[in-house]
Design a protein around this nucleic acid. Structure first.
Lengths: 227, 227
DNA sequence: CCTGAATCTATTGTCAACAATCTTATTATG
DNA sequence: CATAATAAGATTGTTGACAATAGATTCAGG
């Protein structure tokens, strides 16, 4: 997932590990995250842990209070549907436009592979896997732009969206339809018409956003603070 | 400017100080930024400096290479006009919609004050000051949303836009016109019609973006690396 | 029993020393 | 002279100890 897992450099490894714990639900919104605890868990000093947590704060996954504590963020439905998703649309369509000219056989093969994984996940009704693959599909678009800033911004935005939707498996109903959507999308990519592809991607993202928004009334407080 | 300048906590103070050096042009795109140097300059240890620099990396102002160096970012014109500005539009219109209902006499007074400062800056043809005031105007919109995440995202996006435009005083030509644009914008705010206000803000931002884009052909390498 | 001051505890903030890594300069070798 | 091994220098990465702060607890005085 993350571009930043360079060799060595504990901060990136730790950031990634904590991210995973958040997305696996080990750490829930509102939960306290303590430097010392993380440091002991990974058997490192607090230095790299602090830097990792700073990264996650900037990504919007953690909220920290000076001299007090830091907790996993609570993202509101409103923020996701009204702000984060529109920004995501901007980012992905921009990346698509930039990357499209350089797309080749290999890349389309990767798309095909992802789609196949998605199909399988939908058959087995494996929601966590399906979500992962879904993200891989869109990540591939973003990566193809080869613009680091775009990738970073996208990750930051998507992390928040993801954190929010983990606690509402809103598209579990119709994984098949959702897979089909991606197949149509991929077909339009293969057509070679950039504008059509961009339009299709935009529609796809907006449609998903709408579907989800309709499904959830307003579940703000997803979890309680546990100590 | 920054919301995070809480009492104490060196990392925020240092981040802000370095930010200022970047925006004042003391540190130019491509310039090397060394932990030890910053630490000595502010007479602190490297710990807080590292964390401050991590913040700036996440904000897109610095780029760091593991075990090697970190430098001030080079932002491309394309990135600004095609990506960052559209994202800015999203953020500000969203903030406007959220904040608008709570706008009161005091807030409008603040807008008036800012506009007056802007008018004066335009008369004295003080471009740095004008830019500052311009930012204050838009920041006020964003702050009025009272949503921290929105504020943070906006700052991060705007910092990059700002870094790019520092080295091309593209709107120096017509500060008066630009001031007038803001007056019109403020008037539409005062009308009380949210949708009209949003539309006006959108047009304003897009217009500025277009004007600027036309003025600059493609000046990518703004400065050289100095050691 | 209440209230506020003093104390204790958990946690984050800061520091200075040491380790690891990359780059560049130097030297040995054919 | 070219080139590969090696050493030196600059810079970032990591660590453990100590300081500062906020919140909870205890306890004295009314």
């Amino acid at each position: 997932m993350n571009v930043n897992v360079k060799k060595s450099s504990l901060k990136y490894q730790i950031a990634e590990a904590v991210r995973k714990e958040i997305f696996r639900g080990v750490l829930k919104p509102g939960d306290k995250v303590t430097e010392t605890v993380i440091a002991q868990k990974f058997e490192v000093s607090r230095g790299p842990v602090r830097e990792a947590m700073q990264i996650l704060v900037m990504e919007g996954l953690l909220v920290s209070t000076t001299f007090k504590e830091t907790r996993v963020s609570q993202i509101t439905t409103e923020e996701v549907t009204d702000l984060l998703v529109p920004m995501r649309v901007n980012l992905e369509t921009f990346a698509l436009k930039k990357g499209f000219p350089s797309w080749n056989k290999e890349l389309f093969q990767q798309f095909d592979d992802i789609l196949e994984k998605m199909r399988r996940a939908s058959i087995f009704d494996d929601l966590p896997l399906f979500n992962d693959v879904d993200i891989q599909f869109h990540e591939l678009i973003v990566l193809s732009s080869k613009m680091n800033n775009v990738v970073h911004l996208w990750e930051s935005i998507l992390n928040r969206i993801r954190l929010h939707f983990i606690y509402q498996n809103s598209l579990s109903d119709d994984l098949h339809q959702y897979t089909e959507d991606h197949r149509v999308l991929l077909d339009s990519f293969k057509s070679g018409d950039v504008d059509a592809a961009v339009k299709q991607l935009e529609d796809h993202l907006i449609k998903t956003n709408k579907t989800r928004a309709e499904l959830l009334p307003d579940l703000t407080n997803t979890s309680q603070n546990r100590e």
